[in-house]
Amino acid sequence: MNKKRWKQAGAAVFMTILLMTGCFLSSSSENRGEEESGETEFFAMNTYLTFQAYGEAGTIENALKEAQERVEELEKKWSVTDPDSEIYKLNHSKERSAVLSNDTAEVIRFALSMAEETGGRLDPTLYPVLRAWGFTTEDNRIPGQEELSELLEKTGYEKISMEGNRLTIPEGMEIDLGAVGKGYAGDEAAEVLKKYGIASALLNLGGNVQAVGSRPDGRDWRLGIRSPFGEGNLGVLEVSDKAVVTSGNYERYFVGEDGRTYGHIMNPDTGCPVDNDLISMTIITDEGKCGDALSTSLFVMGLSEAEKFWRAHQDFEMLAVTETGEIYLTEGIENSFSLETSFQKMKIHVIEES
């Protein structure tokens, strides 16, 4: 077994986005009179989740409870390791076909549409490749080229067939919703809170951050963007009513016997960890599921192609950090992001529309 070194999701803040709460947590009663704050923490989707919300007295507890239950419900349907989940049953069935629940069918349709939109940079069929590298088992190894070639023959989102809620996949293919699942779950949890009339909440799904409205005092939420170079925050991003999602191969990786570092985000073309000019990619968008999908796929693309993709769409913002220690951010968040003191010397490039 190869020498390995891991950085994994852990208690509350082991991903790129850290929540910067501060003194405003106790301010809602002063600003809103009858409002109160509440928080729930739980483990789901292989990470720790923290939901903070502000609302009318008497409703906050029920709202948070239902939001948590909604996330747990989706996890039970989508887990690749739970024998009772829809995804597990499909991946291990002899028929290779199943009629899915509306939730599962909808998220797979979304994943397939994003795979098409990103030219296959997002591909929900790479699970066997991840397993070969040991990222699903923690028994890390470097697969040989012949093994990878055989596995890649069984991947490819375009080989999936959907008719209504019936999904059919080829023999040997396995579906994994890890690149969109947390984002989708965050959207669903936010909708639960809104149903209860909650207009101010911050949901942290292991680094996927969903901001519902603004802070209780009406100001933007302040989110600490974790430094991909070590401990601490790179800077602060101010947002309201947005999802903020970051991807990077520094989150989960191992060092092989060859001395090289191998990260968990795979290039669908090669079956190998992405190795380009980026160290992290942060997406700011209206929906968590879009942020989840884009943070992964644009990280795979690399900086130049990611810039072209943004200019062609411009319905999201991005903040990319390069291996050389420079920051590239889109013009829409130029005035919303500020570097921490220890990173003031980093060069920031603003990506403009044209």
Rank of each mutant, 00 (worst) to 15 (best):
L205G: 15
D277A: 09
Y262I: 04
L294G: 10
S200Y: 09
Q210W: 01
S280A: 14
G206Y: 07
C272N: 13
E238K: 15
P273L: 06
Q210L: 13
D286F: 00
S200C: 03
D269S: 15
G232P: 01
T246G: 12
R219Y: 12
L223S: 11
K242V: 00
V239P: 06
R252P: 00
R226W: 02
D275R: 14
D275I: 02
L205W: 06
D241F: 02
S297Y: 08
C272V: 05
T261C: 11
T246P: 12
C272R: 15
T270F: 03
A211R: 05
L278D: 05
L298E: 10
G259K: 10
G224L: 14
S214A: 15
E251S: 13
E251M: 12
C290A: 14
S247C: 07
E257S: 15
V300T: 11
D292F: 06
Q210N: 13
D292Q: 04
G207P: 02
M266E: 02
L223A: 11
T296G: 01
G259T: 11
T282F: 11
L237Q: 05
I284E: 03
D258Y: 05
N267C: 07
L223E: 09
T285W: 02
M266D: 01
G271Y: 05
T282E: 09
L278G: 05
I279Q: 07
D286P: 00
V274F: 00
D217G: 06
N208W: 03
